[in-house]
Nucleic acid binder design. Sequence first.
DNA 1: GAAGCTCGCCTGTGGCTCCAACTTTGCCCG
DNA 2: CGGGCAAAGTTGGAGCCACAGGCGAGCTTC
Lengths: 245, 245
Amino acid sequence: MANSDPVYLRVVEDLRRQIVDGTLPPGAPIPSRHQITRKYSVGETAARHALRVLAQEGLIVGRVGSGHRVREKPTLLPSYRSRVPEPHTPFAMDMQANGRQPSWNWRSELAEAPPEIAQRLQLSQWSPVIRIRFVFRGDGKPMQLATSYELIEFGQSQSPEEGTAERRSTVSRMAANGTKITEISESVHVRVPQPTESDLLELPTGVQVLHVERTHWAAERPVETSDIVIPGDKFRLVYGIPVSL
Amino acid sequence: MANSDPVYLRVVEDLRRQIVDGTLPPGAPIPSRHQITRKYSVGETAARHALRVLAQEGLIVGRVGSGHRVREKPTLLPSYRSRVPEPHTPFAMDMQANGRQPSWNWRSELAEAPPEIAQRLQLSQWSPVIRIRFVFRGDGKPMQLATSYELIEFGQSQSPEEGTAERRSTVSRMAANGTKITEISESVHVRVPQPTESDLLELPTGVQVLHVERTHWAAERPVETSDIVIPGDKFRLVYGIPVSL
DNA sequence: GAAGCTCGCCTGTGGCTCCAACTTTGCCCG
DNA sequence: CGGGCAAAGTTGGAGCCACAGGCGAGCTTC
């Protein structure tokens, strides 16, 4: 079975086993390419490949000059998704709950709803909507991205604007507006970050992102929908599911 | 800028651009290693590396003999997490909603709660609990894993048992029992699958998993908690967040 | 004893080659 | 004219080598 398997897998599996069972604790040095070639009697290519795979899996990190080490377990900040966000976005509330200084900036502009967004807002394709792009930071470091689409009739302004940290949550803005948000729905999946996202979020290779599609509903109609990109190595999402009595 | 960048990145970026902007639609063939070496004037190593990176990102898939193609967009099955699961687990309900035949098997036994589980159940470490392991299948193929921990006073039996597809959801079992579940909480994060998980779920390399920690509460006390492992390439989790009027 | 520098180790990148296994295609022969 | 087979093309695995540049241990020098 494991006989005809590729050679590099033998190395990967052995090292992985040692990492997950704690023989190699977080921070411990991983044998170098040369050491692997000797220890496992494999070529340099296989050694390199094995290290790449483990790095790709997020189990080890390599630094030029000082070798590979077992990745330290990141502490995942909770993001409480079930709390209705007021006065600010969930992100700002999470950061405050976690004792970090939240800051963010945004840019709004008029745009045409691409097919998927149009569907989520129950509009026809390429209808005009207001698009707002956010970059959220915690203690100055970029931590989440979001792109929000609002129906034009609810947006305050149709001309491009931008700002920092003073935009309020959709829920409270709508409330001030006379529109009561009655439900929020979120759909969560995992994906590989796009290059611009890796860039903006300063993601190490191998880290995937949680993609949250969030829609605000008022009276059975969607009024706003957003795509939120959350680094998988920094956050966990916490939901409460009420059970009606 | 892009001048001193590694050569293979030029290839990756060009192909990626063509894929994301639709020049190369899903299913379209990607140039072979030899074609890449010629077209971009790079060595074969760089060409191969570029293809590996794109495959790793999930944008293309390679098949021995017939080349690489742009990956078809996988359809992610929705998993409706907010619905209170009766009479069966969320998984079974999702499969039915998606028109697939659900099946599962489980094994229960007495175990000692490891620190993290003990904390989630508000017990002291290594307290006796009932541990139940599930493998969930859709149309016969393994799709989700779960490990559940129940307080002994609520479990029906303390001796090891196993079964197939007849175990009811915690909510309905507790109800039959006189204990009303009042809330369910879930915490979602992403992680790399452990080898046994990759094995059981038959995951391709590079696919990460959604790890859901789910806890059932009755009268402000946790009565059951489970770890659910969900392949990131097969499911998206859907939550509804009620906004109280 | 402390400060600074040198040299060796390690990673990341990249080039070249060979081989096994598999797919596709097109040609040849019946 | 059609079916089957062989050749060409492709991926994935594997080996070897080279080189730039970061990092750090340890030696040298002040």
